[in-house]
């Protein structure tokens, strides 16, 4: 169970004042929205960092580190803003390094292991294409921080989506082996796509308040873009699989705990230290 307060809209409380449950609610939706954005970027940035020094060529090493760096930058902005929205004195570092699995709000897609380079590129294509469409909309968010970060980051993730598209095309339409690996990578990641388009209570409320976006509205655009890349890559879209959901409520796969154990060990081992 998530340890954060329930986020369902209360039915009775409508009054204003010191004990203002609707103001509390607004903060909570903002906090949750920022966590989702920040955790997606953080966890994928962490995964890309694992490649460092082990990529197929120096050029690829550079581009993976570059994307990782962009994502860690986004995470820093979103998580610092989440801490401020929460109002309990936590900053981005406290949120990144001192939460456990149940309190992480990233989607399952980004926590998937790197696998081989094809699997990494499958994950990147499916995620960055979505993130690009999302950030394009978030530039109009009523929350100033979200709008500002999205405006900067949309350029970054547009490049990530392009880079991933190019690699998916190269690998799909490359050799027999690369094609097989690319298809396997897509097959692995495909079941995590529906979660990206899930409109739960938080997402619905965030969209209604103008701080978040209605992700369903760009599903068709997303599908068309992915289909175009796969067509050029001469790859078949995997068959639809049963969606795996739960990341936005803290219910993740087994991989995230290991990722966090590595990422968080130093600040958790020395809780009194600053770095």
């Amino acid at each position: 169970m998530a340890s954060l307060p329930p986020i369902d809209v209360p039915t009775g409380a409508t009054g204003k004042g010191a004990f203002d449950s609707s103001a509390e609610e607004a903060r909570s939706v903002l906090f949750e929205t920022l966590l989702r954005l920040g955790d997606d970027s953080l966890i994928l940035g962490q995964r890309l960092g694992e490649w460092c020094g082990h990529a197929p060529s120096v050029e690829v090493d550079l581009s993976l580190a570059n994307m990782g760096l962009d994502l860690i930058g986004q995470a820093t902005h979103f998580l610092n803003a989440a801490g401020a929205a929460e109002g309990r004195g936590r900053d981005g570092d406290a949120l990144a390094f001192h939460r456990d699995v149940l309190d992480f709000r990233n989607c399952w897609l980004v926590e998937q292991p790197n696998g081989d380079f094809a699997q990494t590129m499958a994950r990147q294509l499916l995620f960055s294409t979505w993130q690009q469409l999302l950030f394009e909309r978030l530039t109009a968010s009523t929350d100033e921080t979200i709008a500002a970060v999205a405006a900067k980051a949309v350029k970054e993730v547009t490049y990530h989506a392009e880079l991933a598209s190019e690699w998916v095309i190269r690998l799909g339409d490359g050799t027999e082996e690369s094609r097989r690996r690319m298809q396997d990578g897509l097959d692995w990641m495909w079941r995590f796509v529906p979660e990206l388009f899930e409109m739960d209570a938080v997402a619905t409320e965030a969209a209604a308040r103008g701080i978040g976006a209605d992700v369903v509205a760009f599903r068709a655009d997303y599908d068309a873009r992915i289909a175009a890349v796969l067509a050029e890559a001469t790859l078949a879209a995997p068959k639809d699989q049963r969606p795996i959901l739960g990341g936005r409520r803290g219910h993740h796969g087994e991989h995230l705990g290991h990722l966090l154990a590595v990422m968080q060990f130093l600040p958790r081992t020395y809780p009194d230290a600053t770095w």
Binding site: L42, G45, G49, L69, I72, A75, D93, M263, L266, P267
Partner: peptide, 14 residues
């Protein structure tokens, strides 16, 4: 990189 102790240190190291 995966174990840098803060977001800032991680970004700098990357």
């Amino acid at each position: 990189i995966t174990r840098a102790p803060s977001l800032r240190r991680k970004a700098i190291l990357l």
